[in-house]
Amino acid sequence: MRQTPRVRWGEFAIESLIRVIGFSTVGFVIIIFLFLLREGLPAFAQIDLDNLFGTRWYPTFDLFGTLPLILGSALITITAIVIALPLGVATAVFIREVAPNWAREILKPMIEVLAGIPSVVLGFFGMTLVAPIVRETFGAPTGLVAFTGALILAYMSLPTIISVAEDALDAVPKLYRDAGLAMGATQWQTIWRVVVPAARSGILTAVMLGMGRAIGETMAVMMVTGNAARMPLGLDALFRPVRTMTATIAAEMGEVAHGSVHYHALFAIGIILFVITFLINLAAASTMFRKRRRGGLR
């Protein structure tokens, strides 16, 4: 009995410690955001909005048009998802519904390894192997183009898409599969008409998370997209060099004078990127939330 107070103090100390650690994690996010705002907001005052959302990014001539960068990011992210979505969902379906147990046991860890490959390695891979193939196949003057970046990004977002989509398929009750099979649907008909539609909200979440992963990627993209800040318009935009928001920040931040307009402009790009990824994550979370409210269906 005499020990009780000490135990209580111990409990209290541990609880407080955990609470402080927990809150500090959230606190750091807020601090980062405030820092981003402090450094980035002046840009919106110092640069005309016409200039800031213009089509030309030439900092040396005080031209800070972020539009080509935003569109560059959007182009390769969307292309990457268009490539990765069918591959990712098909892989998830294969692993969850078709593959025999032993194959599943091999494939799942391999996909986790895929998620752990450093992006600079993928960038290197893209530069030396994928870029020449793109150049030769599509007859582009260089292989360092938006399409190469999209291929690498697709590959990088695959593990996210596969594992989230697979969880979604796993959550579809066996009753649905049984119902489909018992009505004389083949295994494929059951998968495509029953299981995948029942998992569609989870698959949507997978796509959102994959997009979030792709749009924030820097190193690999910087290495393979050619980094020309031009408007990616026209039908051949995919096979021309392009520059993303992330690559711009990474490439220029090291050489910019602290406190200059250019410096603030780079942080402004950071704010724009932050808002975009926040919106994507919000969309992903809301589909997940809707799914939970509806009992895991739709």
């Binding site: 009750p173 049984d178 119902a179 009505m183 649907a185 008409r193 539609p197």
Partner: peptide, 25 residues
Amino acid sequence: GMVFQRPNPFPASVFDNVAFGPRVL
């Protein structure tokens, strides 16, 4: 055909549930 212990309609409309089998055919 088979009817199960727990009702297991697909998470879809009434029409699509009944039309499932004919569509599969």
